[in-house]
């Protein structure tokens, strides 16, 4: 019985990996003014790299991030963007010190992140989990390999 349950759990885990359905430890959030509810990983990566600067409806994107050494920022970079935090920093540095772009706004904590994203039109950020009553919406990320559902 226990063995059967174990096998079933194992099969379930395998199928999850196989079909690429996975719940991340991070949720991408946007200001309610943002009209889309999902975007490709390429688009999200380009927005956090400060290269894609407007939403499909033309509204400017306002990006908020936690500090480079924040554990949630590290998780976010690796899981949601599939890059290392230092690569994102290199991209911003190249832009701000060569006149070809800007850096995102850094916030000190998840609470501040929620507050800023809720109050800034076009805002994009991330937190661990959205609670009922938070005045933000979640953005799901789709790519050919993985499908992200924000619960």
């Amino acid at each position: 019985m226990i063995r059967a349950a174990h096998t079933m759990a194992h099969a379930l885990l395998c199928s999850c990996l196989l079909f690429g359905v996975k719940t991340w430890a991070v949720t991408i959030i946007v200001n309610p003014s943002v009209t889309i509810s999902s975007a490709s990983q390429n688009a999200v990566r380009a927005m956090f790299a400060m290269k894609l600067l407007q939403w499909p409806d033309g509204q400017p994107v306002r990006v908020f991030v936690l500090p480079d050494d924040n554990p949630l920022h590290r998780t976010f970079c690796k899981e949601a963007l599939d890059i290392y935090p230092y690569q994102l920093r290199q991209t911003w540095d190249r832009q701000i010190y060569s006149g070809t772009g800007q850096a995102p706004t850094e916030v000190g904590s998840e609470e501040e992140m929620l507050k800023k994203v809720a109050s800034t039109p076009g805002a994009l950020g991330y937190v661990r989990k959205v609670k009922p009553g938070d005045r933000v919406r979640t953005l799901s990320v789709s790519n050919p390999v993985r499908t992200f559902s924000a619960e």
Partner: peptide
């Protein structure tokens, strides 16, 4: 060192 105007003609998720 630089004094640049950067004009983006086109930007979408896959091409800029």
């Amino acid at each position: 060192d630089y004094a640049t105007a950067d004009y983006t003609i086109h930007a979408s998720e896959n091409t800029r």
